[in-house]
Write a protein that binds this DNA or RNA. Structure first.
Lengths: 253, 253
DNA sequence: GTCTATATGAGGATAGAC
DNA sequence: GTCTATCCTCATATAGAC
């Protein structure tokens, strides 16, 4: 039955081409600009063909979300090997923000557009599990690190008495806030991103203890006189190609 | 010249009716559903008439943003009288989040849609000032409180050494993250909102000192076993009518 | 499976009559 | 000032030929 398999492969290949084209459009022009016509044009097929592979525009968006979230998780993987849980948490936090600014439209699609997209991302990347709550893998990584940290008795004050899951969600929210404001509000970052992330991580994890080996985060992480302005376009992602900032309307009136 | 004045009043009145209708639509169906036709239908005028009062749909959105931000600032006003700066900051933080969940579509429009909308909100509410940076009034309130706090020498560790403007922005980002995740990600709040806000404020401000008079925030602010789920729909706003949650797509996959 | 052609409907914005 | 009528663009989705 090699013929059937070849056909199946071809079908999968076209599906991938569709997703590739869709991703490119989202990355370059934002999700709002994603249309079936544009995708069809890009891959040089007719719009009708798309519907043989995806039920609707939304299903394409869901697939993109799952891809993006998997990419985010992948960027976390190497950091899981950092032995010190506090340093690991800091690294994860920085990686999270870095992903957000490096892939603004992807991040927007997953976390800022629609609840169903977020759901699709989490579920899609966690295998095809369809239990009650698929559970957020990224969140679990943070919770684990925090548990370790607490086990080591290295937590101060309010952190120690807080439920880890709550703490992790709150930290996630803080990081999301930094990314989200950065992507949406041009007024926002009068302080450079790294500074904000550093300050935030310090607030949640306490001052980094000088005991560790690796060069600590907040070395350059304290703001002096609000030095640099504007987003630094660091794009310090070792991942894939960063997305150029989509041209939204103007900034200040 | 009474005639001219009456005409002017009438014109203003219609402008208000347009904005009212637009606000209702945004509140009930979300900004994406706001169209000139719908507004026209709602006020029983022809679509063309709208263009005599607003240059475009975007200009209407800008006006709505300015209104919404003014409302947010108004909800802050009474809190400015809290003597203790730490308690004041906590109250401001809670009010901010409360506004966000009580007026989700308004919040979304101002802070999560488009940079130009955020800009319009800040500039519009700060009078018609058109200096370089209109500056964010809400942010300034926080910075002032922090300055006081530092003056009183009541800051611990990392906070003391951080530039107040940076610190304020970072705290803002944290609160924004809580609101934004709550509005977008149905997966998110496994912990109740109040808990997250409490934990976050503790992280930034330190444990509330029992010295003060008022009943402290985080009395009920520590999460026990992740008790309640789902957004509590507290709607603890003393302001105007809260916005019912707009039906976005479904939550989980 | 893939295409052309088209149904259907939405939206923003404008021209020109009253 | 206000309306009617209209232009134009763009979208999703389907029918039916190849």
């Amino acid at each position: 039955m090699g013929i059937a398999e070849r056909k199946h492969r071809q079908k999968q290949a076209l599906r991938e081409r569709i997703l590739d084209a869709a991703r490119r459009i989202v990355v370059r022009e934002g999700f709002a600009a994603l249309s079936m016509r544009k995708i069809a044009d890009a891959i040089e097929y007719s719009p009708a063909t798309l519907y043989l592979h995806f039920e609707s525009r939304d299903h394409i968006a869901h697939a993109l979300c799952a891809e993006g979230y998997a990419q985010l998780l992948a960027s976390f993987a190497p950091l899981a090997q950092i032995a010190d849980p506090a340093e690991r948490l800091r690294a994860l936090g920085r990686a999270y923000v870095a992903f957000g600014v490096a892939h603004p439209e992807t991040y927007r699609l997953i976390f800022m557009e629609d609840p169903s997209y977020t759901g699709a991302a989490l579920a899609g990347a966690a295998g095809v599990s369809e239990d009650d709550t698929a559970g957020d893998a990224a969140l679990q990584i943070m919770i684990d690190a925090l548990d370790e940290l607490r086990g080591a008795g290295r937590l101060s004050g309010s952190v120690a008495s807080t439920e880890p899951a709550v703490w992790a969600e709150a930290l996630w929210a803080s990081l999301h806030g930094i990314v989200a404001l950065n992507l949406t509000c041009s007024v926002f970052p009068s302080a450079p991103l790294e500074t904000l992330v550093g300050v935030t991580l310090d607030a949640w994890l306490g001052e980094p203890q000088a005991a560790g080996a690796g060069a600590s985060t907040s070395a350059a992480g304290r703001g002096k006189k609000t030095a640099a302005r504007r987003r630094p376009s660091t794009a310090s992602s070792k991942h894939t190609a960063p997305e150029p900032a989509t041209k939204r309307k103007a900034a200040g009136p």
